[in-house]
Design a protein around this nucleic acid. Sequence first.
DNA 1: AAAGCGATGTACT
DNA 2: GTACATCGCTTTA
Length: 205
Amino acid sequence: MRLTAYDIPTLDFARSLLGCVLVHEHADGRTAGRIVETEAYLRDDPACHGFRGKTARNAPMFGPPGTVYVYQIYGQYYCVNITSVPEGVGEAVLIRALEPLEGLELMETRRIVARQRIQQVFGKPFSPAPIKARDLCRGPASLVHAMGIDKSLNFSHLQDGPLYCLAGSLPDHSVTQTTRIGITQGADLPYRFYETGSLFVSKRA
DNA sequence: AAAGCGATGTACT
DNA sequence: GTACATCGCTTTA
């Protein structure tokens, strides 16, 4: 069942996304993974790209519920976000980790290609070592590579795009809420959610 | 097991 | 000019 109801507060959305399945229909094949880690970025939160208002880069964050926001970070990586509040409000949820379910071979191929490119950038010799399933979608930029997500999905909508979400859930006793990872602003805000004990989350806390 | 480090390009000060 | 919602190799304990 494709998830279609996205008009809920961003913090609730980050929590409720856990257990849902992210799917990407791509010419190379279909990949899917269960969402096990998310972070919310709110309008009054200095870490949020929308904090200082709408710009060309963060415009998708201000789109209607279900809008996909793909942005580049550290020159060579991309992260994916989804909005859930009405148009004009700059908030979104970052997807940080998936439990791979479908298309694992394709995911590994994409990850190895991406890694090869990065190691060339670093001037390191490339060894096509296999990637363990638990590491395929572990981390926001890793899952973007594995799922074949790129800037062409920016401004697309989960309701009708090639990237979409299947309904799912996780009971409260399986959810941990903590501070977010890899940020300096708003580092004390408890806006990160992950499946307790999951081997697929980007880090333990 | 944990911590250090650098590549890279775009947005924003 | 500076900062950055990262990753994976290398070094240290």
